[in-house]
Design a protein around this nucleic acid. Structure first.
Lengths: 157, 157
DNA sequence: CCGTATCCATTCCGATACTG
DNA sequence: CAGTATCGGAATGGATACGG
């Protein structure tokens, strides 16, 4: 489990809130995006993001501390590499959701954007969609939040 | 399209970055979470989030300006309601991805958390997973980022 | 109950300079 | 190249006070 030092959960019993505490930050999300795209080095992130060095340094340190990146020092003691851990790689679904929401909602018809391709088909990756167990699309109105401590609804037992 | 006033894109051609500019903030994500859970009123958000009033007021204004929430004023001029727009409701997949990543990676085996139930089955909502067009699971190593301006790989044409 | 306004401490962030 | 250190302005965030 991710065990960040000195982090107080905003809402300890909600997984959305814990996730937001860990990765709910613009630079953090973009570093993960770049990591999933194969970037490893400080300068690669710096060039890609155009972020100040101290901020990049801070976010990389946080990501390592939170268990999303592993810092691999070089033999010469410098030029470390930052590789995704399993928990970090598991953010692929989240970043893809972000990307596809952005494609649907943050571009006009005429604007172009980068695309994520599935090499096995050569086509853009299909949209991620929540599905019910029977394969039906599941929307926000069909889902029900159950708080901890509350008994599950009859049908769930 | 979402047209926020006075917002400079961090990386205009990347949908992940545009999405992060719009919703890549802890309080914003948690307000969306609550909205998807049916919350509508200032005091509901305030009680749920424990956030300072000025911050909540600021984030609600931003979310309305960015087209994710609609402010519905009451007849008496006060007690507005904040309802999700279509673009806001479309964040369901993202919030669900956040939730499920948090469940997998931010809790130990013994800790309990809130659960999202699909009423049609009574069971927790199945995990959202990226799929290839042929129905195979798609991981980060099988996906390829194509920048704008670059020609698509042969197979994609 | 629904906010807005103000004060204050803290953090964020960019720019720059500096070290190995 | 890979950072750390520092400075200053801007934004964040909590607390409280205040009006509709």
């Amino acid at each position: 489990m991710l065990q960040p030092s000195g982090l107080e959960w905003t809402d300890p019993e909600c997984p959305v809130a814990r996730a937001a505490d860990l990765v709910g930050d613009k630079w953090t999300l973009l570093i993960i995006r770049d990591s999933l795209d194969g970037k490893r080095r400080f300068s690669e992130f710096e060039k890609s993001l155009g972020v100040a060095k101290n901020i990049l340094s801070d976010r990389l340190r946080l990501l390592v501390d939170r268990g999303l990146l592993a810092r691999i020092p070089n033999q010469s003691g410098t030029r470390s590499q930052y590789e995704l851990t399993d928990a970090g790689r598991d953010l692929f679904t989240l970043i893809l959701s972000l990307r596809q929401w952005g494609e649907r909602n943050a571009f006009t018809a005429g604007e172009s954007h980068s695309v994520l391709i599935d090499p096995s088909t050569g086509q853009p990756v299909p949209e991620v969609r929540p599905l019910s167990a029977d394969g039906q699309e599941l929307g926000p109105d069909q889902a029900l939040l159950v708080k901890v401590g509350q008994p599950l609804p009859e049908a769930a037992r």
